[in-house]
Design a binder for these strands. Structure first.
Lengths: 116, 116
DNA sequence: AACGTCTTCAACCCATCGGTTGACAATGCT
DNA sequence: AGCATTGTCAACCGATGGGTTGAAGACGTT
């Protein structure tokens, strides 16, 4: 799967508040589907689906422990997002500083004109 | 609008490859709808819709210049995402380091047993 | 006033999403 | 073997999302 593809899935996965909440809770430690589902009003199946989305995005892995399926957060995927965000944030900020520099120059040359 | 809400919109906005591409291009500088739409196979109206989604997410602002609507990237919203990501990445990493420490301890105590 | 340019609005289509319920698969416990 | 526990699969439903086309709005130009 391409990075583009992965990025789409990761962003889409985190667009849902319930899934963001699941990720948040998983930073506290691994948990089973039942444990994760308990706090929510929705059915267990719905949570199971959410977990599948997170898994397909690579944010989470599910192992086997008898009937249980402990869910584990894969923090590395965050890096992909961070890299994307930082790349464009940087570009944008560079552009602004160039703009600032330009405005400064403009102001300087005007000050010179005023002085002359 | 709550941060939760804003986060959902931002993540959802960036889940689409076309919209990510638009953001990327806007780091090069402001552009009109027509300019932004030109490279894509889709209709201008479709791009206009994408821009509305980006605007509602706060990633972009649109000003007025006669018939044109120059689009401008608002880099600050990236911070909201970065904060969210970093918060949970940190938590996850802290947990891993605690786990590592625990495993180290375990290994040490075993080594002691082996030695005795 | 009439026309061309740039953009949005509105209605529609189809695919996807988040949710439901019901059935079933897999495993532990007696 | 039989039952309870844990979780997934499948089919369905209403809402949303990305796309289309056609019309209209908002300007500058002549």
């Amino acid at each position: 799967m391409s990075d583009e593809d992965r990025l789409s899935r990761v962003f889409a996965a985190l667009a849902d508040p319930t899934r963001r909440d699941l990720v948040a809770r998983l930073t506290e430690g691994d948990a089973t589907v039942g444990e994760l589902a308990a706090p929510y009003a929705v059915s267990l199946q719905a949570v199971s689906k959410h977990l599948k989305v997170l898994e397909d995005a690579g944010l989470v892995t599910r192992t086997k422990d008898a009937q249980r399926r402990p869910v584990h957060l894969e923090a590395e995927v965050f890096d992909l997002m961070t890299r994307w965000i930082e790349r464009y944030r940087q570009r944008a900020e560079e552009r602004y500083s160039r703009l600032d520099a330009l405005l400064d120059e403009l102001q300087d040359s005007r000050a010179e004109e005023d002085a002359s």
